[in-house]
C-alpha cells in the first residue's frame, strides 16, 4: 500500500477528510507549529479541536462551507479550484492559485500577497 495512506491512517489528519490541508496551509504561509496552526484553523471555522480532526463532522461542515470534501460527487458540492476561493475567504489568507486564476480570468489584477 502507499506509504502516504499508511501515515494518513496512523497519524495524520487525512487532508480534506478533516482539516489537514488547512492546517498545513498555516504552516506554509505563517510557519505555525502544529498546535498553533490547528487552533488558528479551528477558531476561523468556529469548531473545537476534537471536531477539527473528526472526519464525519468536518465533512458535513466542509460541504456546508464549500471548502472541499473527500467525496465531492453531489452536484452542488464544490470541487477543485472552487473550494480554494472559499478557503481563502474563510481562513483570511491569499492562495496563489486563486490569485492567478482571478488574474487570468480577468476577475481582477493579482494582488501582492503577504
Amino acid at each position: 500500500m502507499a506509504q502516504e495512506a499508511n501515515h494518513a491512517i496512523s497519524s495524520c489528519m487525512g487532508g480534506v477528510r478533516t482539516a489537514g490541508d488547512l492546517v498545513l496551509r498555516m504552516q506554509m504561509t505563517h510557519k505555525m507549529k502544529i498546535d498553533d496552526a490547528k487552533e488558528y484553523v479551528a477558531n476561523k471555522l468556529g469548531v473545537n479541536l476534537e471536531q477539527l480532526s473528526d472526519a464525519v463532522y468536518m465533512t458535513e461542515l466542509r460541504d456546508e462551507l464549500g471548502i472541499g470534501t473527500q467525496l465531492p460527487f453531489i452536484t452542488d458540492a464544490n470541487f477543485g479550484m472552487e473550494t480554494k476561493f472559499n478557503i481563502s475567504e474563510k481562513l483570511g489568507m491569499k492562495i496563489n492559485s486563486v490569485e492567478r486564476f482571478k488574474e487570468r480570468a480577468g476577475i481582477k489584477k493579482a494582488e501582492l500577497m503577504v
Binding site: A2, E4, C12, I34, E50
Partner: peptide
Amino acid sequence: KVVGVEPGREVVSTNDSGSYKI
C-alpha cells in the same frame, strides 16, 4: 498491524512523491 497516535495529536503531511509514483 497498525498503531496510532493519541486522538488529537494528528499531524499533517508533506512528501517527495512527485505525484508520479503510482
